[in-house]
């Protein structure tokens, strides 16, 4: 196996031209000495446990999410990826019976601490869902919705809408039909509208739960390109089923799996390995990761 330096992570702070070419791209030995954890985490999870009623869905997850990095959460279905993601902006609060233990910090502040307003958390940590879910409103009103409900100080809503749509690489396609219903857009356009809607509220972190799983390959690759562009302004955390997608877009990857409980048989999700994406895919340190990556386990 030839070991060649990947441009991917030689300079984590510059983002131009940074991409992971193939799964076989491996880091130099020198780079392996890099700390496995992001040096400047925007968000961290410490001892995160999630329960749905009596069911222990996620066991003791520790993660940190670096500034201007894309972190991918991968693993078999039902291992708690979405659950972990929803904990990061307190969307799990909305699930009746869900209970969270441990800490999730945002810039060092525990978002589950007493006195933290989940609504304020969500304005800083936005979310894009699996199925495009535009509101039954015009394209313009979809974008303006967030700033309006959060009472954001906006000089010109028109400018903000344009900025958000440009930011989501959608402006050229919709600039002549801003007043038309968002339901007239294609699935891929709707998903980019949802991304635009999220960035209109100027969040810091964007969570994406399998944002491409309902899209065709062309729309998927447009969203992936968009994620790479957004990385320079946002911290992105993406759940994906698609390992190629994780390999293509992410800087770091967290691999989860589900372990059946001896007594109840319930499958509790746990974090197996968290590392730079190139290492996870080329040289995983855990056998389970390797099996999953190489398709021996699904």
């Amino acid at each position: 196996m030839s070991i060649k330096p990947a441009t991917a992570s030689t300079a984590p702070s510059t983002h131009d031209g940074r991409h992971v070419d193939t799964l076989a791209t491996v880091h130099q030995d020198a780079e392996r000495e890099l700390p496995a954890l992001p040096p400047d985490p925007v968000m961290e999870a410490h001892g995160l446990n999630v329960f749905y009623g009596d069911f222990h869905a996620v066991h003791d997850v520790n993660l940190s999410f670096g500034r201007n990095e894309i972190t991918a959460l991968i693993g078999p279905s039902g291992c708690g990826k979405s659950t972990v993601l929803r904990c990061l902006n307190r969307m799990n609060d909305l699930v009746t019976g869900a209970r969270v233990e441990g800490e999730v910090t945002y810039h060092g502040q525990n978002i589950y601490a007493r006195g933290v307003d989940p609504i304020a958390v969500r304005t800083h940590i936005g979310m894009v869902f699996q199925k495009p879910n535009p509101f039954p409103k015009s394209i313009y009103d979809n974008i303006a919705y967030g700033p309006r409900v959060t009472g954001m100080k906006v000089d010109s809503m028109d400018d903000l809408v344009e900025e958000a749509l440009r930011g989501a690489a959608l402006w050229d396609e919709v600039k002549d039909k801003l007043k038309q219903s968002a339901y007239g857009l294609s699935g891929g356009q709707q998903q980019r509208l949802c991304i635009a809607r999220t960035i209109a509220t100027r969040p810091d972190v964007i969570l994406m739960d399998e944002p491409c799983s309902a899209l065709d390959p062309i729309a998927t690759s447009r969203i992936e390109d968009l994620m790479m562009e957004l990385r320079s302004d946002y911290t992105i955390i993406i759940v994906t089923h698609n390992m190629q997608q994780a390999a293509r877009v992410s800087d770091r990857t967290a691999f989860f799996t589900a372990r059946p409980d001896e007594t109840t048989g319930n499958r509790t999700g746990l974090l197996v390995e968290f590392d730079q994406t190139t290492r996870i895919f080329a040289n995983p340190s855990d056998k389970r990761t390797e099996d999953y990556i190489s398709g021996r386990f699904g």
Partner: peptide, 27 residues
């Protein structure tokens, strides 16, 4: 009115009340 619509609204930082008033009821 699908749950995803409400979730989308809440994820943008809207309150349950705003979500009901601006999204669910009009639909």
């Amino acid at each position: 009115v699908p749950e995803e619509i409400r979730q989308g609204s809440l994820a943008l930082g809207a309150t349950v009340w705003q979500t009901t008033w601006r999204n669910t009821l009009p639909s």
